[in-house]
Simulated assay, not measured.
Amino acid sequence: MRAKDAVGRYGENVATRFVQDAGWQVLDRNWRGADGELDIVALDGTALVTVEVKTRRGVGFGHPAEAVTARKVARLRRLTAQWVAAHDVRPRSIRIDVIAVLVPRSGAAHVEHLVGIV
């Protein structure tokens, strides 16, 4: 596994623990649809939430959340609709969140949760 892939996998694991600790029910991880992949699909109460996880070792190339462009958001919306169509889940509401994970050289990862980016 490449170092970049390992950092991304670590960030997804951190984000999954973060939402589970918040009481969310994780329904799916790394779900692949026609337009790509959803990192995390979970229930936050009655809301279905798809979570895009962005992980970086530093901010030299910008904050991790800055990598979620308008084009990426449009793709996440299409993927979320595909996930709902493929599963027997009828949530009261649907939203897309971003979890940004910064992994320092030493110490714990820093997690920032951006709720309802669209």
Rank of each mutant, 00 (worst) to 15 (best):
M1V: 06
M1Y: 09
A3C: 03
A3R: 10
A3D: 05
K4E: 09
D5G: 02
R9V: 06
Y10F: 06
E12Y: 05
E12M: 06
N13E: 09
A15Y: 02
A15V: 02
T16K: 01
T16M: 00
R17N: 03
V19N: 01
Q20S: 01
Q20Y: 02
A22P: 08
A22Q: 08
W24K: 11
D28A: 15
D28N: 07
W31S: 12
R32E: 12
G33P: 03
A34H: 08
A34T: 03
A34I: 02
G36Y: 09
E37K: 05
L38G: 08
L38D: 05
I40Q: 00
I40P: 00
I40C: 04
V41H: 10
A42T: 06
L43S: 04
G45W: 14
T46Q: 05
T46W: 06
A47Y: 11
T50H: 09
T50F: 14
V51W: 12
V51L: 08
V53P: 01
V53R: 00
V53L: 02
V53A: 00
K54Q: 10
K54V: 06
T55S: 00
R56H: 15
R56V: 05
R56F: 04
R57I: 02
G58E: 07
G58A: 05
G58W: 07
G58K: 12
V59E: 09
G60C: 06
F61H: 13
F61P: 04
F61Q: 12
H63C: 14
H63Q: 12
P64T: 06
A70E: 11
K72I: 02
K72H: 12
A74S: 10
R75G: 03
L76V: 11
L76P: 01
L76R: 02
R77H: 14
R78H: 11
R78A: 08
R78F: 03
L79Y: 02
T80A: 02
T80Q: 04
T80H: 07
T80K: 06
A81C: 05
V84T: 15
A85K: 14
A85W: 14
A86Y: 14
D88L: 15
D88G: 12
D88W: 12
V89K: 10
R90Y: 13
P91W: 15
R92G: 10
R92A: 14
S93L: 08
I94H: 11
I94Y: 07
I94A: 13
R95Y: 14
I96L: 13
D97P: 03
V98E: 09
I99D: 01
A100S: 15
V101K: 04
V101L: 05
L102N: 06
L102K: 10
V103M: 10
V103Q: 10
P104A: 04
S106H: 15
S106E: 14
S106R: 09
G107C: 14
G107R: 11
A109D: 05
H110C: 08
H110G: 05
V111K: 08
G116H: 12
I117D: 07
I117F: 15
V118R: 15
